[in-house]
Write a protein that binds this DNA or RNA. Sequence first.
DNA 1: CGCTGGGTTGATCGCACTCAACCCGCGTGG
DNA 2: CCACGCGGGTTGAGTGCGATCAACCCAGCG
Lengths: 250, 250
Amino acid sequence: MAAISLPDTIGAMTAAERLVSPCGRCDARRLSVCQGVDDRCLDQLAAAITTIRLQAHATLASEGDEASHFFNITSGAVKLFKLLPDGRQQIVGFLFPGDFVGLAVRDTYAYTVETIAPATACRFDRRQFERLLERFPNMAFRLRERASDELAIAQEQMLSLGRKSAKERVASFLLQLSRRAVRLGLPGNPVTLPMTRADIADYLGLTIETVSRTITRLKTSRIITLGPDHTVTLHRERLEEIGEGWGGDI
Amino acid sequence: MAAISLPDTIGAMTAAERLVSPCGRCDARRLSVCQGVDDRCLDQLAAAITTIRLQAHATLASEGDEASHFFNITSGAVKLFKLLPDGRQQIVGFLFPGDFVGLAVRDTYAYTVETIAPATACRFDRRQFERLLERFPNMAFRLRERASDELAIAQEQMLSLGRKSAKERVASFLLQLSRRAVRLGLPGNPVTLPMTRADIADYLGLTIETVSRTITRLKTSRIITLGPDHTVTLHRERLEEIGEGWGGDI
DNA sequence: CGCTGGGTTGATCGCACTCAACCCGCGTGG
DNA sequence: CCACGCGGGTTGAGTGCGATCAACCCAGCG
């Protein structure tokens, strides 16, 4: 039962798991998504995986294309977005290391996937992967949990887009980024904003001007502090009050 | 191998399947979610199911409660919504016969579930059901597909809430209802609006006044026709043009 | 150097919100 | 029988938040 090494990771890492695989290469048996999977399966998985390396603003998949592959982000960050005919854009999610692309997909991609920073990802043949899942229900179970998490995030985002003010949207977005950073084993405060104002705006259903003004107002009210390299220090109590809709004035 | 009858349905019915079980009682082996499940399992399923009957505006589950049960709607309609402290409400989904409550749930419900019309549902003990899923991966697979569909709908809704005008939101909402009706084996045109203006508003991130005005404007532009009993006839070409953001003026 | 991408700030505009009045159908009770 | 309240819906007048249009700053880079 020798340890078998997969190209990079097949994801589902917890923060703790990530700590034991600092360089992106890891022993698959340490990954929660692989628990209960035997070595022979891991061999097959390894055969189905290709590691891809991408520059910033590269496209992994396009809305409407046949969903032939399944991805797991191993470094960097990507955005998922939908477009309207006149160019209006809505980002439906940001994905970071450990996240999957294609959980919500049936036969075609419902969104375009683009890197917002240089990234690496593992690519699987979709049908090959589905066959493996049939034989290894543990992995399928973990994927269902991930899909549930995604859905919960999407619903939280619907609340923001439908009912929160610009100030509240920005506040809950910053808190969401902070929680995500903690999950990845990074400091939750200060937090880094890896995306541009335009991407934040397209995620929050606002314009870049409104995002910029709102961040400025949060800054001058000492609710956040802007640091170097796109870092933001959050003063959690007041930020949470605003983000959760308690109406703290600024 | 006698046919085994479950109390009502455990869901995942296609339109065709629904046709063979007109009264809500059905042979579980006809349901896609049960394919490959043997009779002994069906016995256990039957034991884990309770049929519940609900009036309009009854609560099945509340945001924040421990997620002890899993539901499948067998008749009527329910809404899932989230609340902000000051009473603002966002409906994150409407569910109709065949739909599941609790796909997106981990340990607590992320939303409140309330009927918008008299309804019946099947209730499962969550842990018991999860144990069955471990043994019957086919069912787990179908559930993952359902969760994927839900996520795709949620993402489409994010596009509406974040980037569409009131007119576009109402148009795509009507088309969504029409598609859902077809899936349930009902006519897709005219379509029935089972929910109030307030519920539509809380789903679309608008106010009741805006919903009312927008519907009126669609009506006077002959893009929809209002019939009796909350029915609406859709003039699809123009409605799709608007709902998909091509900017047809009204 | 100038150009470009990312970001901030100001002035003005307009869509959807707010507040208000009113209609209708229905059930209830005097 | 009418009076009344109530929930659901429509319509009008006025307001405000965030969009739009525009100017400008700054850093990086060819």
